[in-house]
Design a protein around this nucleic acid. Structure first.
Lengths: 342, 342
DNA sequence: TTGTAAGCGTTATCAC
DNA sequence: GTGATAACGCTTACAA
C-alpha cells in the first residue's frame, strides 16, 4: 500500500498525491483532483510510510523526551506522569509522536546523542538537566533544537522552569515565620542537578535573610527516591542534632522523611514541622498532608513542548526562558496556619 | 556523515561497512578489514540514519507502548512509571527504542493503527486492554506483533498479566476472615477494562464462597483517578448503606476513598476496613498504610517486553499467556492481623 | 495545474 | 571476502 496505489486509483501522479495529502502551500491543485486523491487515500486506508517520509523530508515528526535518571528512580517518580500529560496535550495537537528515553547519568552519558545523530528525533525535551552533562554541551554547539524543563546556567538552550531558588526561599520563610530556627534541609537530588542546587540555595538565602546561621550538618542530599529520604532523615535524627523543622525539596523524598520521623517516635508537625516541594498529587492525601510548594508541572511540560515545536518550525520564540509561578500550599505538616507568609 | 564516508575512510565499499557494522552472519570478513571499518566509523562518529535503516530493513527498532486512557488520568497514574522501569530494562538490552502514545478511549479509537500502518513501530505493548476496542481486533486479524499487559478474552494475543480474579478473591477473603460481612466494592476503572471486570468478579466469588449475598448497591465503579475514588466512596457513605469494609481495586482510587472516609468522620480500620490493589510504592507510606494486593508490575512489563521482542525476532515464545504471582500485603488499613488468611 | 525524475541513506541480492 | 547495483517509499526541484 503505497502512494503509487493512491495515485493509480485517483488517476494522478505520486507527486500530486504528496502535494494534496501534505497540503503543500503554493500549489494550486484543482478542486476535483484534490477530492479524488483524498477519496482514493481514504478508500485504500493509505497511511504514508514514516521511514520513507522521514528519509525524504529530513523530519521524523518525533520529539524525544530525555530523562536522566537511574532506572530504579523511575518507578516512583510521580513527576514523569505529570510531564507526560502536558506533553501529549501539545504533541497530539501537532500530529507528532513521542519517543522517550531514560539515560543513566553515569554510564551512558552520551546515549541520547545517538538519537540525534541517527536523526531519529527532531528535537529534544530534557527534563532535569545536570551540570556535568557533557553531551548536552555537544547539542549546544551543534545547535540542535532542545528545550530544557529546568535550567542550565551559562547555556544557550531554551528553557521552561520555575524559580526554584525563590520557591525554596518561600518554603523556608514559611517555617521561619512559624517560629522555627533550627531547620534541616534534604535535597531532592544530588547537587549535580541544577534544580537541587537552586533549592538548596533558596534554603540558604531564607536563613540568611532571617539572620539564622547556616549549619552544614543539617544539610543532606537525597536522590529522588523515597528510600533516600528515609535514610537521610533517619541519619539526621540519629545524629542527635537539634532541629524543629525540615525542608525537603521533593514530596517523594519527603514521603520517606516523614516515615523516618514517625518511626523515630516523633510527631509531625508537633515535634518536627515539614515542608515539601512539587505538590505531587498524593501530597494532599498523606497524613499529615504536606505543606508544600506547588509546581505547575503539567503546564511546564505543555509550555516546553510548545516552545520546542516553535523551534522546529523555525519560528523565533517570543521568549526563550519561560518561568512559571509557584505557590506555597499550606496543609497540615507545619501545624496550624498561625501567621500567613507575607 | 553517511556510510559512504566511512567506506571511503576505510577504503572499502558501503556494502562492507554495512556487513561489518551490523555483524551480519554468514559473511566472512577479513580481520583487518573489519578493524579498519570499525575504526573509521568510530573516528567519524558515524551513526546510521534511522529512517534509511528502517526503510531498507523494514524494521524501525521501535516498540510502541499504547495506553488507553484519558489525558487527565495520566498524571496520577503511578502504574505507568513502574511499567516504564521494566520496559526500559529490556528495551535497552536489545538496543531498541520506545515510542509511547496515550489514546483516548472514546475519540481516537483507532489512532494507534496509524502507527502500525506507517510502519513506525515494530510491535505494540498495550497496557490495559478494553473489551470494546475495535482497533485491537484489527491488529489481531492482521497478526501484528502485539503483547497485552493485561488480558482480553477470546483473543489470540500474547499476554502477560496476573490473575486479577483470584487476587481480588484473596483480598476480599481477607476481609471476610477478619469477620466482615457487609463489604463494599469500588472498581479501579470502568467495566470496559478487562482488569476491572475480573477484579469485580473476584469480589463476587469471595462473597459467594462465604455465603454472603452480593449486593449491587454496594458496588461502585471508579475511573483510575483519586477523585473518582473520593466521589464513589462519598456516595456510598451518604447512601447510609451499612458496610464495615471496602475493597478498592486500585491503590490510587483507594487514596481518594480513604480521604472520603476520614472526611466523613470515620476511622480506618476501626469504622471501615480497607483493602487496596496494586501495592503502588506510596501504599506503605500513607496513613493508615494500605493492606493491598501486591502486583509485580515492573516484572510484568519486563516479561511483556521480552515476549514482544521474541515475537519480533520470529521466535515462537514458550508460552503466550504468562501469569505472574500476586501477594496479599498486610499492613494497617484492615486493623490488627488477628487471623491470617488460610 | 500536474508529471518526471532525482535523490534521501540504508540494506540486500547478486556477481566477481 | 568484497563490491556493484537495485530496491525501500517518499519528497521536491524542475519541466511541461
Amino acid at each position: 500500500m503505497t502512494s503509487q496505489d493512491v495515485a493509480n486509483l485517483a488517476g494522478v501522479s505520486r507527486t500530486t498525491v504528496s502535494l494534496v495529502l501534505n497540503n503543500v502551500e503554493g500549489f494550486k491543485i484543482r478542486r476535483d483532483t484534490r477530492q479524488r486523491v483524498i477519496k482514493a487515500a481514504r478508500e485504500l486506508g493509505y497511511v504514508p510510510d514514516a521511514a520513507a517520509q522521514a528519509l525524504a523530508s529530513r523530519r521524523a515528526r518525533i520529539i524525544g523526551l530525555i530523562l536522566t535518571r537511574f532506572p530504579h528512580q523511575i518507578s516512583t517518580d510521580a513527576f514523569i506522569t505529570q510531564i507526560l500529560e502536558g506533553l501529549f496535550d501539545i504533541i497530539h495537537q501537532n500530529d507528532m509522536r513521542l519517543l522517550i528515553d531514560i539515560i543513566e547519568p553515569e554510564h551512558q552519558h552520551e546515549a541520547y546523542l545517538q538519537l540525534v545523530r541517527a536523526n531519529r528525533i527532531d528535537g529534544i525535551l530534557l527534563s532535569g538537566p545536570r551540570l556535568d552533562d557533557d553531551a548536552l554541551r555537544v547539542l549546544e554547539t551543534e545547535n540542535f533544537p532542545t528545550v530544557l524543563i529546568g535550567q542550565l546556567p551559562n547555556a544557550s538552550f531554551c528553557s521552561v522552569d520555575v524559580d526554584n531558588r525563590a520557591a525554596a526561599t518561600m518554603a523556608v520563610a514559611h517555617l521561619i515565620n512559624l517560629g522555627h530556627e533550627r531547620i534541616a534541609f534534604i535535597s531532592n537530588a544530588p547537587l549535580t542537578y541544577t534544580a537541587a542546587v537552586d533549592r538548596k540555595d533558596g534554603y540558604r538565602i531564607a536563613l540568611e535573610k532571617a539572620g539564622i546561621p547556616y549549619a552544614e550538618n543539617l544539610v543532606r542530599s537525597a536522590d529522588f527516591t523515597v528510600e533516600s529520604g528515609y535514610q537521610q532523615m533517619a541519619d539526621l535524627l540519629e545524629s542527635e542534632l537539634e532541629f524543629s523543622a525540615v525542608f525537603v525539596a521533593s514530596d517523594i523524598v519527603a514521603l520517606g522523611a516523614k516515615s523516618a520521623i514517625l518511626r523515630h517516635g516523633l510527631k509531625i508537625p508537633q515535634d518536627i514541622a515539614l515542608v515539601g516541594f512539587d505538590d505531587l498529587p498524593f501530597a494532599q492525601y498523606v497524613d499529615p498532608s504536606f505543606t508544600t510548594i506547588h509546581l505547575p508541572t503539567i503546564d511546564l511540560a505543555r509550555r516546553a513542548t510548545e516552545l520546542l515545536i516553535k523551534l522546529l518550525e523555525g519560528e523565533q520564540p517570543d521568549s526563550s526562558h519561560i518561568l512559571l509561578e509557584t505557590d506555597l500550599v499550606i496543609r497540615e505538616s507545619c501545624g496550624a496556619n498561625l501567621r500567613k507568609i507575607l
